[in-house]
Design a binder for these strands. Structure first.
Length: 472
RNA sequence: GCUCUCAUCGUCUAAUGGCUAGGACGUAUCCCUUUCACGGAUAAAAUUCGGGUUCGAUUCCCGAUGAGAGCACCA
C-alpha cells in the first residue's frame, strides 16, 4: 500500500475579535512546529466573518504577536471577508441540493423552543420546522421581506472520525439539529466558512483547541454535502486556570502582548508554551526552536488540559535571560550600550526573572536611595566599630588610582582588612553604604561599576550618617 | 439537563504488562556566601476509587466518581 504522500498544509485561524491570547499562540505554535517538522506550509487565515466584533486593531495584534513569537507564515493573511464570492457559490450549491434551506423562524420562537427542550431535559436542538417549506412558500416569505437565515440539514446519522491525539470519536447527528451556516448568501458563519476554506486551501491537518471538538461533526457533515475530502484532525488539550477551568483573565494575563510587556523573552514563552500539553522524549526542559521543530510530534501531545504555571514561566525566562550576552540584554532592555551599563547588566542578569525587573534592581546604581543609618550595622555590632571600619576602608580606597579601581584591585586591598576585622563588620557596611539597600550585588562588584569618585562619595555619606548619630 | 472529552507528586510531565514510578517548577533544609541572587546537595510529595483480564497492572477492559469543554443568526 503506497499511500500518496500529501503535502502537509496547516493553518492558524484566529478571529480578530479580541487580543491574540495564549491559547491561540499555543495552537499557532503547534501548527507551526508540525509544518516545519514535516516541511509543510503554515497558513494564516483571519476569520473575520463576525462584522460586529471584528476590529482592525485585533488583526494587527494577531500579526505582531505571531511575529514576536517568530512564527512566520507561508501564505496569508487571508481574510474571510475577502472571499464572500467563494462562500456564496457553495451556499447556492447547498441550497440547490436541498442540503441547506432558508429558515424564517424568529429569535423569539427559537428561544421559546430552546427553553422548552431544556425544561424537558433534552439538549436544545432546532426542530427543523422550516425544512418543510416549499419553494413557493420561501419565495412568498422573501417577498414579504421576512428575516431569514440559511440552515444546514444535519443528517440524522452517526459520524465517526479519528483524532490524532484522542483516537476514535463518535457523535450522533440526530442530536445536533440543523445549524445556521449563513445569515444570508453574503454573510457566512463560522462552521461553514471553515469547511470551505480548509478545502479550498487544501488543509491537510486541522490542529486546534479542544473547544472545537464538538464542531467537528458539524463540519464533517458540511464537508460531505459539498463533496470535500476530510482533513486529519488533532484537538489540543485546553490551557487551564489553577482551578482547572479554561484559562481566563481572572487568574493570569491572557493576551500575548501582555507577556511581552511584562518582560518575558519570546524564546522563553515559546519554550514554555510548547511544554503545555507536550514533552520531548527525554528529560530536557530547555529546548531551542530548532530542537522543538526536530522533536515535535503530535502523537506525544497530552490529552488532558494543562494548568498555566507562571512560576515555571518565570524560571524559564530567567534561564533564557542568563544566556543572553550583555550586548543583547542592553538591546532587549533598551539601555544605552555603554561600558558602565554593561557592568551593571552583568551584575543584574542573574537577579532578574523578567526584563521589567531591571529597573528596580538597578536604580541604586544611578541614584543612592535614602536609607537609615541602622542599615549600615551588621547584626548587633557596635556602631563605633562600623564607623571605624568604614573610615579605614575609605582611606585604603582613596589611595587607589582611578585606573586601578577594579574589582580585583579593591578586593586585594580590602580583603586583608575584612579578614582581620571580620567580614560581616567590614563588608556588610560597605555594601550597604554603596547600595543603600538590604539586598544587592557584592561591594566589590558595585564599586567596579560605580568608579572611584562615586564610591568614595557614598562611603562618605555613610560615615556622616554614623558620625552624626554618634554625636547625638 | 444533553453530548463529547479527560484523570501519575500542589503544577508541567516521563515510564513500562514486571526493579526503590523518573525529571522539572514550586516548597523545606543544608552548602557556597557580608546581604540578595546564581550555583550545588538533600528531603517531603503522585498512579482517583471499585471490579475484571493476567503469574503480575499506573499501563488493557468495564463501572463509579471527579473535572473540563461544547450545546448562538460568536468563533
Amino acid at each position: 500500500m503506497t499511500a500518496k504522500k500529501t503535502e502537509v498544509r496547516v493553518r492558524i485561524a484566529p478571529s480578530p475579535t479580541g487580543y491574540f491570547h495564549v491559547g491561540g499562540a499555543r495552537t499557532a505554535l503547534f501548527n507551526w512546529l508540525f509544518a516545519k517538522h514535516h516541511g509543510g506550509k503554515f497558513i494564516l487565515r483571519i476569520e473575520d466573518t463576525d462584522l460586529e466584533r471584528s476590529k482592525k486593531i485585533f488583526e494587527e495584534d494577531i500579526i505582531t504577536s505571531l511575529q514576536w513569537l517568530g512564527l512566520d507564515w507561508d501564505e496569508g493573511p487571508i481574510r474571510q471577508t475577502d472571499r464572500l464570492n467563494i462562500y456564496e457559490k457553495h451556499l447556492r450549491q447547498l441550497l440547490e441540493k436541498g442540503s441547506a434551506y432558508y429558515c424564517f423562524c424568529t429569535k423569539e420562537e427559537l428561544e421559546a423552543e430552546r427553553q422548552g427542550m431544556l425544561a424537558q431535559g433534552f439538549a436544545p436542538k432546532y426542530s427543523g420546522k422550516c425544512r418543510k417549506l416549499t419553494a413557493d412558500e420561501v419565495r412568498a416569505n422573501q417577498k414579504k421581506a421576512l428575516a431569514s437565515v440559511i440552515r444546514f440539514r444535519i443528517p440524522e446519522t452517526r459520524v465517526d472520525f479519528t483524532d490524532i491525539i484522542r483516537g476514535n470519536i463518535s457523535f450522533d447527528g440526530a442530536l445536533i439539529g440543523d445549524i445556521v451556516i449563513a445569515k444570508d448568501l453574503r454573510s457566512p458563519l463560522y462552521n461553514f466558512a471553515v469547511v470551505v476554506d480548509d478545502a479550498e486551501m487544501a488543509i491537510s491537518h486541522v490542529i486546534r483547541g479542544e473547544e472545537h471538538l464538538a464542531n467537528t461533526p458539524r463540519q464533517i457533515f458540511i464537508q460531505e454535502a459539498l463533496g470535500f475530502s476530510r482533513p486529519k484532525y488533532a484537538h489540543l488539550p485546553l490551557i487551564l486556570n489553577p482551578d482547572r477551568s479554561k484559562m481566563s483573565k481572572r487568574f493570569s494575563a491572557t493576551a500575548l502582548h501582555e507577556y511581552k510587556d511584562h518582560g518575558y523573552l519570546s524564546e522563553a514563552l515559546v519554550n514554555f508554551i510548547a511544554f503545555l500539553g507536550w514533552h520531548p522524549k527525554d528529560d530536557k526542559e530547555i529546548l531551542s526552536i530548532e530542537e522543538l521543530i526536530k522533536e515535535f510530534d503530535l502523537e506525544r501531545v497530552q490529552k488532558a488540559g494543562a494548568v498555566f504555571n507562571v512560576d515555571k514561566l518565570d524560571w524559564l525566562n530567567a534561564q533564557y535571560l542568563k544566556k543572553l550576552t550583555a550586548k543583547e540584554l542592553a538591546k532587549a532592555l533598551a539601555v544605552a550600550p555603554t561600558e558602565d551599563n554593561f557592568k551593571i547588566i552583568e551584575l543584574t542578569r542573574e537577579r532578574m526573572k523578567k526584563l521589567t525587573d531591571f529597573k528596580a534592581l538597578t536604580e541604586f546604581f544611578y541614584e543612592l536611595p535614602d536609607y537609615d543609618s541602622k542599615l549600615l550595622v551588621w547584626k548587633s555590632s557596635p556602631r563605633r566599630a562600623i564607623l571605624e571600619n568604614l573610615r579605614e576602608e575609605e582611606k585604603l580606597l582613596g589611595g587607589l588610582k582611578s585606573d586601578d579601581f577594579t574589582r580585583a584591585e579593591s578586593e586585594k586591598l580590602l580583603l586583608p582588612l575584612a579578614e582581620a576585622r571580620g567580614r560581616g563588620d567590614t563588608l556588610w557596611p560597605l555594601r550597604a553604604a554603596l547600595s543603600g539597600q538590604e539586598a544587592s550585588p557584592g561591594p566589590f562588584e558595585i564599586m567596579d561599576a560605580l568608579g572611584k569618585k562615586e564610591t568614595l562619595r557614598r562611603i562618605q555619606i555613610a560615615i556622616d550618617k554614623l558620625a552624626s548619630h554618634e554625636e547625638n
